[in-house]
Amino acid sequence: MQIFPRSLNLLPLMLGGAATVGGIGLVGAIWYYLSPSHLQVGYEPEQPVPYSHRLHAGELGMDCRYCHSAVERSAKANIPPTQTCMGCHSVVHPESARLAPVRESWETGESIAWVKAHVLPDHTYFDHSVHLAAGVGCVSCHGRIDQMEVVRVDQPIAMQWCLECHRDPGPNLRPRDEITNMEWEPDQAWLSNMAEHVARVNPPEHCSGCHR
């Protein structure tokens, strides 16, 4: 008894082809769509206060460390306390409606619930102070913060991205006093001494460098 039409004879081959193409497509899709450069870069969370880095760090020219004061000494580039804001805003635009959450925080003592934009996995130990001491500028990882109205993730925070720099730190190094300078470009004298700069930092490449 003939149970299948003749036209079905090609079906298994077509299914096999479709499975192959689908499998490759799936791997490709994971590779692209699930990669940090697709998932993380461009993350722009809305903050409780419409704080503008462009205005403060860019136009007003405030140094990063005015607010993120512990960045050279601690693992975390701290979020400034409300005091830091009120230091100026008790006199600058003290009545601004946009600053209402800041004044509220100041009065109640409750912290402002800033949203973290640059999120690292829990099993990764990243230390800002070490990187700044080695001469890695803010801009290398965070991009042109001084031009961002709202903070946006600029680089993919993936393991390979970290290790690329750990293996070849040269292009991301700068003099320590230029760390917060967003516009610094290496000059000839700096480039000619590159070997020396690189020899100084010796970044770890072993697992426990970042995973303890």
Partner: peptide, 13 residues
């Protein structure tokens, strides 16, 4: 778990 297989993954590792 797909990190276990030799296919491109999120860590780019």
């Amino acid at each position: 778990d797909y990190y276990l297989f030799p296919i491109p993954n999120q860590m780019a590792m």
